[in-house]
Simulated scan of single mutants.
Amino acid sequence: MLQIMYISSAANCAPIDVAQILTVSRRNNERDGVTGFLYADGRRFLQVLEGPAEAVERAFARIGGDTRHRAVVTLSRREIAAREFGDWAMAHRMPGSDSDALLAQIAERLETASPNVRATFEGFAKIRRAA
């Protein structure tokens, strides 16, 4: 199985419609056997995709070609023996939301993730919380 972690920014100044992205992503990922975790704060995306190598490659290619993303940067790409994320999940930070609750939600969803993946998401969330 392949796991890719990336970060990207929204391509324009308009807020990201995370609900619409989630709906389409869940459909595509279920169809293709891809799981992972997405953190979107309205301006940036941090995501892990995992599953069969060809399916993950196709999903990542779709993301790279999506005009809503810019500056897509691969943070890690590795083979994994087993899924670290059992099903598709997403954390979403809304302005004025309870940051402590969000950090707790992220920690819970990352319990089985590798230390590097967990540290990347937790660090990103803490930085965004401070912003």
Rank of each mutant, 00 (worst) to 15 (best):
M1R: 02
L2R: 11
M5S: 08
I7T: 13
I7K: 14
S8W: 13
S9F: 06
A10F: 10
A10G: 11
A11K: 02
A11F: 04
N12F: 07
A14C: 00
I16L: 08
I16K: 07
I16E: 10
D17N: 00
D17L: 09
D17W: 04
V18A: 03
V18C: 02
A19Y: 05
A19G: 14
A19V: 03
Q20K: 15
I21G: 11
V24G: 13
R26S: 05
R27C: 05
N29S: 08
R31L: 01
R31G: 13
D32R: 07
V34Y: 15
V34G: 08
T35D: 15
G36E: 02
G36R: 02
F37A: 07
L38W: 03
Y39L: 14
Y39T: 06
G42Q: 00
R43I: 12
R44I: 05
F45E: 04
L46H: 12
L46K: 02
Q47S: 09
Q47L: 05
Q47C: 06
V48T: 05
V48L: 10
L49D: 14
L49V: 00
G51D: 11
G51H: 00
P52S: 03
A53G: 11
E54P: 04
A55R: 09
V56E: 05
E57D: 07
F60R: 08
F60I: 10
A61S: 12
A61I: 05
I63S: 07
I63T: 01
G65I: 10
G65S: 09
A71G: 01
V73S: 15
T74A: 14
S76A: 15
S76M: 14
R78W: 12
E79A: 14
E79Y: 14
E79S: 15
A81W: 11
A82P: 12
R83Q: 09
R83P: 06
G86K: 11
G86L: 07
D87L: 02
W88M: 10
A89G: 13
M90E: 09
A91L: 02
R93A: 10
R93W: 09
R93N: 08
M94S: 02
G96I: 00
D98P: 06
D98R: 00
S99L: 03
D100M: 08
D100L: 02
D100E: 12
A101K: 00
A101E: 06
A101T: 01
A101W: 11
L102Q: 08
L102T: 08
Q105S: 15
I106R: 05
I106Q: 07
E108F: 15
R109E: 04
R109K: 12
L110F: 11
T112Q: 15
T112I: 13
T112A: 15
A113N: 06
S114G: 02
R118W: 08
A119D: 04
T120K: 07
T120R: 03
F121P: 00
F121T: 01
G123T: 00
F124G: 08
A125E: 14
A125W: 12
A125H: 09
A130P: 11
A130T: 03
